[in-house]
Design a protein around this nucleic acid. Structure first.
Lengths: 225, 225
DNA sequence: GTAGTCATGTAAGAGGTTACATGATTAG
DNA sequence: CTAATCATGTAACCTCTTACATGACTAC
């Protein structure tokens, strides 16, 4: 918990998850900023996405805070690269974060907010959005499932590197915890898909009802004629 | 889609959900900023939370953009209040937002990120966090369910006000759409609870395994003695 | 030589959080 | 008269997004 005092405003940092996501990867193996950028585009990006423009400055801040150390290594003739490794203070911070209670993030999902106002959109637009919702979560499930299987099948490179430094009798426990996290996002995604499918069914139902009302109306008009 | 050009950077606004959440409430009935603050603490806050310090400035910006109009009304002898109402442009913007496709927000849930590193925390700390996770989602489910029942039972004041201005044959459709959105967040919360319960079972399993390993070790030590 | 990858940054803005601030009105 | 409620703001900060920028290295 870092508190900064500037004049009268006191801001208390609670979350800072990018920092811990970075520590969580670097603890397995020292990596460059570039490596981390790629890692966040794939593997870890499925749990915590972060753009390149956020990763480089954060690494510098973490270095300044003593959570990581940077080793400058040559690359070809002139170029260099900075390889970051977690310090003891960094590991302590990661453990503290994993241990400490953290309140639920505020409810703020634009999809459900919008869904509450879907009556303002044409039915076909609602259908398209629900179908896109399903497709996007299906794609994510594929990525998560692949990662899940890689960890479970002991083919996840960085995890295995971490395990070589852990007692053998703990290996299965570590893997089960990581697998459990992935099962969480997969389960959530499946729930989202089921919800969107019920939404599509609701659209059909509404369409039928409207058609019924329209034909009943025209019948009345006909009988009047 | 608002594009602002400043020097070389072009920032394209895509989300701005607070604006649409405000329009979505104001379309039912003109309200003051204070009313909206209270509404976001309760009812709508369960779908989109927003603090007071965000609501007042956003209302001013919406007014400047012509999405709402403010009517200054007296309050007692000296005090005044500003009652905001949606304009035609505001309704059009709300409909556009409800209709347009919006990409899924980036994956960024601190709970699952942390869960992937739960092997770094003591088992009891993990248990406590999972139990808190369950409790928090159970509380949210209660709120959402109450809102769900109020809308379904035609006791939701603002929704009913909106319906008086809609054709009777559309009432059931509007209600079903809103109910569907709430069923989405409820279904998701139930999935979260089920996941956290599996996590608690996993903790027990790990504890048993560790106890087994420890006793096996002491047996070896005993037989050696 | 040139296209793709490796590598590291900066600038400007949007949206959200926490805290500070003030005053009128109303119910007891 | 006093506490709660009604009412409206501002300041400072953090995190994330989009876009701009540069240059060395490597495989062809």
């Amino acid at each position: 918990m870092v508190a900064a005092v500037f004049g009268r405003a006191i801001y208390t940092r609670l979350a800072v998850s990018l920092r811990h996501a970075l520590l969580g990867v670097l603890k397995d193996r020292p990596l460059t900023g570039y490596d981390l950028v790629r890692y966040f585009q794939g593997t870890l990006g499925f749990l915590w996405s972060a753009p390149q423009s956020q990763i480089y400055p954060e690494l510098r801040r973490m270095e300044a805070a003593g959570l990581v150390t940077a080793t400058v290594k040559p690359r070809g003739q002139k170029a260099q690269k900075r390889v970051y490794a977690v310090t003891e203070a960094g590991m302590a911070e990661l453990r503290r974060w994993a241990t400490d209670f953290m309140p639920l993030p505020a409810q703020r999902d634009p999809v459900f907010l919008k869904a509450a106002f879907f009556d303002l959109a044409p039915l076909d637009a609602v259908r398209e959005q629900l179908k896109a919702h399903i497709a996007q979560y299906q794609w994510r499930i594929e990525q998560w499932q692949a990662r899940h299987d890689a960890i479970r099948g002991r083919r996840a490179e960085l995890v295995e590197e971490w395990l070589t430094r852990q007692p053998v009798e703990e290996h299965e426990n570590v893997i089960q915890m990581k697998v459990h996290a992935l099962e969480g996002v997969i389960a959530r995604a499946k729930t989202e898909i089921a919800w969107a499918r019920r939404g599509l069914a609701l659209c059909d139902q509404i369409e039928t009802r409207r058609a019924g009302a329209a034909s009943a109306e025209s019948e009345v008009a006909n009988s009047r004629a």
